[in-house]
Every structure is written in C-alpha cells, then in structure tokens.
Design a protein around this nucleic acid. Sequence first.
DNA 1: AGCATTTGATTCACGAGTAAAACACTTGTT
DNA 2: AACAAGTGTTTTACTCGTGAATCAAATGCT
Lengths: 193, 193
Amino acid sequence: MTATDGGAHDGGAGDGRAGDGGAAGPGGDTVAAVVRQWRAVRPDLDTGPMEIIGRINRCAALLQQAEDAPLRRAGLSRAEFDLLGALRRTGHELTPGELARETFSSGAAVTKRLKQLTERGLVERRGDTRDRRVAHLRLTDTGRDLVDGILPEQLAYESAVLSGVDGVRQGELAALLGGLLGQLEGRLDALRA
Amino acid sequence: MTATDGGAHDGGAGDGRAGDGGAAGPGGDTVAAVVRQWRAVRPDLDTGPMEIIGRINRCAALLQQAEDAPLRRAGLSRAEFDLLGALRRTGHELTPGELARETFSSGAAVTKRLKQLTERGLVERRGDTRDRRVAHLRLTDTGRDLVDGILPEQLAYESAVLSGVDGVRQGELAALLGGLLGQLEGRLDALRA
DNA sequence: AGCATTTGATTCACGAGTAAAACACTTGTT
DNA sequence: AACAAGTGTTTTACTCGTGAATCAAATGCT
C-alpha cells in the first residue's frame, strides 16, 4: 500500500482523537477519507487512480488478514497452503521451479516451504530418473486430505466475507476485476521500464 | 494469496512446458485458469468467491510490484513513502502511534522507519511538552518537497497502469470496490472470530 | 503522598521472503 | 571425449515486519 493510496482509520477527524480504529466515516470507506485528505492539500492532483488502486490494496490487506483464520486452525500459513493447493489443483506432480511459478514466489522460498511440508509428511519428493537435478513433488494422502478438508471451509469463509455485497454486484465486480487483471497481466512487463 | 485463489501463470497447460510466464490463456486472466483447475478436480465446490478474492489479491500483487518503480527512483520503499504520505496528507504533526494506525502497520515498524527517515532529514521529531512519552513528527521542507515531487509521478504511473480499462468501467470498479471495502471495514472484526 | 494501573514508544528475538552465490547436473560444441 | 555454457535447485547473507517484553511517563486510587 503506497502513501498515495494508503488507508486511514479515522483520517478525516484530524483533531487528535484516535478513535477506536474501525468505523469508516460518513463518506464511506477509509480510502475515500484518504482521498478527501489529499484533495484538501493538493487540489491540483487527479486522485482518480487512488480510488481503484487504493481500494484494491486495502481490500487485499483486509482479506488476507481475514483469510488467515481458517488456515491457522489447520496450522498452515497462507504460503504453505498455496503450495499444497497448487499441487492439488493441477492434479499432477510439480517440480520446485514450477511450484515457484505457480505461487509467484522465489525458488528459495519454495525450497524452504517444501522442506517443512515434507518433514510434516504432507508432501513427498521423488527424484527425476533422467535429469537428476530436478525433483518431483506430490501430495501425500495426508496432505491431500488436509487440503480437501480445508478447502470447503476456506470457500465458505470467503463467501461469508463477501456476503455484504449482493449477488449481482459480485458478478459485476468479478467481471470488472477480470478485465483489469487481464490487462495488467498482459501489459505489466511493458510498463515496468 | 491463498491456494484457493492463488494464481497460475500457465496453469491450464499442464503438459510440463512452463511457458514464458506472462500471457493469460484463452479464457482470460490467470485466476480464471486457476478456477478452471479447481473445478476440474473438485466440481462439487462453489468457486465463486475465488473470482473476486483471488483477483483482488493478484491485482494487488501486480500493482504493488509495478508501483515500486517510481518510488525506487527516489530511493524510497513503499512503506517509507506511506509514512511520509500520511504526514503530508493530514497536514499536521502525528505521533508514532497515530502513524502506525494511519499506515496499518505495527508500532515497531514505524519506530524503525522513523529512525531512518529522520536520519535522512525527511522527518523531524518534537517532544510533547505535556506528556513526555509522546513524540510529534512532521515533514521537513526537504521531506515535503520530496513527497510533492513524487506524488504526481506516482499518480501518472497509476493512471497509465489503469489505462487499459475505459473510463466508465473505472468508475464502476471504484464504486463496487468502495462498497465491498465499506462492508469489510465495518464487519471484519465480527468475522475474525 | 505513595503505589498500582494504563498508555505510548522502543528494543529484542525471531520468522519469512528475497537476490545473489554456490552447487549439481545436463546439453551443446569442437 | 573434454569442456564451455546453460539450467534446476539449494544455500547464504540480508532486509523487513511482527509480537512480546521492556522502559518511561501519566493517571487513578486509597
């Protein structure tokens, strides 16, 4: 979250009273409050992008905190579950490199997680017969059962989190986000310059 | 990003060819590909929530990477800029505790960042006269100029990042995200149980 | 006044992730 | 065959953030 889009709990108050830290002001969410602050001190700037990017970042932060709950019950971090989930949903073995790409994390991180998950007996390792550099990872039965047990809870939890938005708007939101994400994934490399 | 919603670069391929790691498949973005994978192996589950939450998480990850670019030029991390931005947009001094709440990070993190930023001469410290526990932080002239210089670049960059989505949809997206965020901020504490 | 409680900030110990180096092995070239 | 270059994985050194403990000061209670 950048300062541009950064959240404020009670940012609009500005009177020194810190508040209890949750309730959005009359104008809506906390990002709206931040945008108002920026407009007050820098009325020349176009704050439009903040209203999208800031909200995406803030939603992601809140959702990830919330999502921790069902996972923690199973003693898994989000990153670990990510790995297991990649193995489960592809349905076949993956190499560490493939897992790194699947989970958008570095190879080093994958190595560490795999070490822990194999020690816990959730994942099994098998060396490639032709190319002895590569390993093939797959879920053990225990690992598979764990993922399959958590997954419905996770989805139910997510469903509950989203329940404040009605079905029609959920559909619209999913479609718009899909459009944005498609653009980002296609063009991001070009913009990174 | 949870495994539930986790991204896949070329997840749909499944033939071992890792691909070059960017292009979304025919069906749209990478989250759509992940959802297809889940549906193939667990057709009983309702994958609806993934299409929103997964996309938000993935968008946030991509956007934050992208956003780094203009900030790095100024030698600032996102978290540091967040702090400076909070001071700039509120327009008045803030205590470390207030800054922690503004930036949604722990007090310890704020302490560390403040140390570096004051050493760099971007932020100034002033002790409270009445309560000698608290400090008041404000931007130096240099700090203020830095923020004011970066901010337009940042917004222009964000604008460019979003340019693939037309104006009308940007408005819709902002509104829908605002609605979701309002719900999340209001009700998250209750769900955290 | 004297002492327990609360609050604000900082320090400490640690876990997690990364980039870069190192390592192990394979592939292409001469 | 020998060796250079390339590829997949792991190790290393480091940064950053966090929760818990600690320190310092104010507030409340008797």
